[in-house]
Design a protein around this nucleic acid. Sequence first.
DNA 1: GGCTGTAGCCTAGGGTCTCTAGGTTTGCTC
DNA 2: GAGCAAACCTAGAGACCCTAGGCTACAGCC
Lengths: 203, 203
Amino acid sequence: MARAGITVDRLVAAAADLADEVGFDKVSLSALARSFGVRDASLYSHVRNLQELRTRIALLAGGEMIDRIAAAVAGRAGKEALTAFAGAYREYALAHPGRYAATQIRIDPVVFADTPAMRRTAEITYGMLRAYGLEEPDLTDAVRLLRSTFHGYCALEAAGGFAAPRDVRRSWDKAVDALHTALTHWPREAGHAPTGKEHESHA
Amino acid sequence: MARAGITVDRLVAAAADLADEVGFDKVSLSALARSFGVRDASLYSHVRNLQELRTRIALLAGGEMIDRIAAAVAGRAGKEALTAFAGAYREYALAHPGRYAATQIRIDPVVFADTPAMRRTAEITYGMLRAYGLEEPDLTDAVRLLRSTFHGYCALEAAGGFAAPRDVRRSWDKAVDALHTALTHWPREAGHAPTGKEHESHA
DNA sequence: GGCTGTAGCCTAGGGTCTCTAGGTTTGCTC
DNA sequence: GAGCAAACCTAGAGACCCTAGGCTACAGCC
């Protein structure tokens, strides 16, 4: 019998596609094995268990996402950069709901410490916010605000949480506008010298 | 053999507690039955299936949550109301992670149309924002922004997404501050008469 | 072309979970 | 005590995760 020719990369790619189709939490090794015409037990020679598969999807998606964001932000600054960042973020989250959901799982920091994608994400985000003249600890606070709003919005939108007869895209633009306003009028922390090394990928 | 005396309400309450302990997605009818000293099949006379149980947990949690928020907001307005709302929201989400997760699931609008809790949530939220002088469609946009940020922040915090050595509570206060700033400097929609009836519970 | 190691795949099976079908018991009401 | 509905049961199918151990296709080497 001809072999399926499975590798870890092909497996993870197929799993990511499956996640986008049926939802991240519904990705099963059984279904994945079926799609390759193979028994589920056979996959355990490529992947340790379901959790590792999920982690790998998350890392794949995280890399893809920051690539798109980096491309969108490149060469821009200030509000333009913020808008580009936000647009790329939401676009990816909506186009790849399964992959996006994967990026939100808790990854064991021992197994996979900080990946290049994480470091790049931190660099781009913090860099973007420094254009607003922010320094620590306001920088970290602002990063947390942005991440929260972006993630919350996409999560709610993907879950069908916005039912009002108001264009979701317009609300998004307005939210980004509002964030820009908040960043420009940021309530500074008084009397705190910046250390310049306080930020990390998962602010 | 003595009976366990199970009712739907006791079942849902126990399920909600279980959700807070082990996580909403790990609540199983098997485990629930075990905790009552009963076979899993026996629960199907009280609850149609797992999905219905989850929906009931969500409705329970939604009601509890808006009760806390309403109590916190009562008698306040403007920034005070916003801070109280945000505080009650985050407190509930962190104290009851399983119940909070339940509130985020998609509920079939056909089966459970709009509950009193939903209507109350809408009233309180929109009422709070009207103090900022906002009218439709800005009102809905602002509601979406608040919901997104609150949810995103709590979701990320609960998932351990904030790893920086910066106090999470302080960042939260700063985020609420920033939202207040954004609301007071809201970029108004030009030339749009308010209809006064455009909002709904899930903005 | 044969030899060998290994990666890729297999069967068998145990455990958890959801859910259905149909039977029994408990305890309340008349 | 009879009737009855609610509460609980066993049995079993099907999906899934994962382990243990066995077979085989294929690449590299003589």
